[in-house]
Amino acid sequence: MSTVTLHASGPLVPAETWERYAEPARWPTWAPQITGVQVPVPRLAAGVEGRVRGPLGVRLPFVVESVDEAARRWAWTVSAGPVRLHLVHWVSDGPDGGSTTGLRITGPLPVVVAYAPLAQLAISRLVRPLDRAP
């Protein structure tokens, strides 16, 4: 198993950045690798099971392992057959206002290395205002 930790800072305030995590229906708005989410609840909670939909209609099951709203921290495990990725996310105050988000990914080295650039793009978008069509 290998672990990589990523960070991104941007102008979005921590409360809004957290809400983008806490409401799974919002994940596709900032995570380009997620095209849809199926969950039985509108907000993250420990024990929630669901599926994320990715490119080409790939659906991967996940389990939310923990959620700490006060600390703005949550963890989940995503599965692809026998391969499991454990992801821990957090949001904190940014260095110049705004917010910083972190992501720790643990899993098989080739999967972690392949996923890290997409994850970095996603968390960089997470801390920025959404692009709006004119």
Score class of each variant (00 low, 15 high):
Val88Ile: 10
Val127Ala: 12
Trp27Ile: 10
Gly47Asn: 04
Gln120Ser: 14
Glu23Cys: 10
Thr29Tyr: 04
Gly94Trp: 01
Ser92Leu: 03
Arg53Thr: 15
Val83Gly: 04
Arg128Glu: 13
Ala45Asp: 07
Met1Asp: 09
Gly47Ile: 05
Gly57Lys: 14
Ala114Phe: 07
Val67Gln: 08
Val91His: 06
Pro61Glu: 12
Thr106Val: 02
Gly107Ala: 09
Leu118Ala: 15
Val39Gln: 06
Val83His: 08
Trp18Ala: 01
Arg84Glu: 06
Pro117Phe: 06
Val78Trp: 02
Leu60Trp: 01
Val52Ile: 13
Leu121Thr: 15
Thr77Leu: 05
Val48Cys: 00
Val91Ser: 05
Arg125Asp: 05
Arg73Val: 02
Val39Asn: 04
Leu130Trp: 10
Val37Cys: 07
Glu65Leu: 10
Ser9Asp: 08
Met1Trp: 00
Ala116Asp: 04
Arg43Leu: 09
Val63Ile: 15
Val113Glu: 09
Ser92Gly: 15
Arg84Asp: 04
Gly57Leu: 07
Gly107Phe: 04
Gln33Val: 03
Pro117Arg: 08
Val91Ala: 02
Thr5Glu: 09
Leu130Phe: 11
Ser9Glu: 10
Pro28Glu: 12
Gly36Glu: 07
Thr3Glu: 15
Leu60Thr: 01
Leu6Phe: 06
Gln33Lys: 08
Val83Arg: 11
Ile105Pro: 00
Glu69Tyr: 08
Val91Phe: 02
Arg72Gln: 14
Pro110Ala: 07
Trp27Lys: 10
Gln120Asp: 05
Ser92Phe: 00
Leu85Glu: 01
Glu19Tyr: 10
Pro28Arg: 14
Asp93Arg: 15
Thr17Ile: 03
Val67Ser: 09
Asp68Val: 08
Gly107Thr: 14
Arg26Met: 04
Arg73Lys: 15
Pro11Thr: 04
Arg53Tyr: 07
Val63Gly: 00
Asp68Tyr: 12
Thr5Phe: 04
Trp27Gly: 07
Pro32Lys: 06
Ala15Asn: 08
Val52Pro: 02
Val48Trp: 00
Ala8Asp: 02
Ala45Cys: 04
Val127Trp: 01
Met1Tyr: 03
Asp68Ile: 09
Ala70His: 13
His7Trp: 13
Leu109Met: 09
Glu16Leu: 09
Thr29Ala: 15
Glu23Lys: 14
Val64Asp: 01
Trp74Gln: 14
Arg104Tyr: 04
Val58Phe: 05
Pro55Thr: 05
Ser79Ala: 12
Thr17Asn: 05
Trp90Leu: 12
Leu130Asp: 11
Ala114Met: 07
Val111Pro: 03
Gly98Thr: 06
His89Leu: 07
Pro32Met: 06
Ala116Ile: 13
Ala8Trp: 00
Ile34Glu: 11
Phe62Val: 01
Pro117Gln: 14
Pro110Trp: 03
Leu44Trp: 02
Ile123Val: 13
Val64Tyr: 03
Pro28Gly: 12
Ser66Lys: 08
Thr3Arg: 14
Thr35Leu: 10
Ser79Ile: 00
Ala45Pro: 01
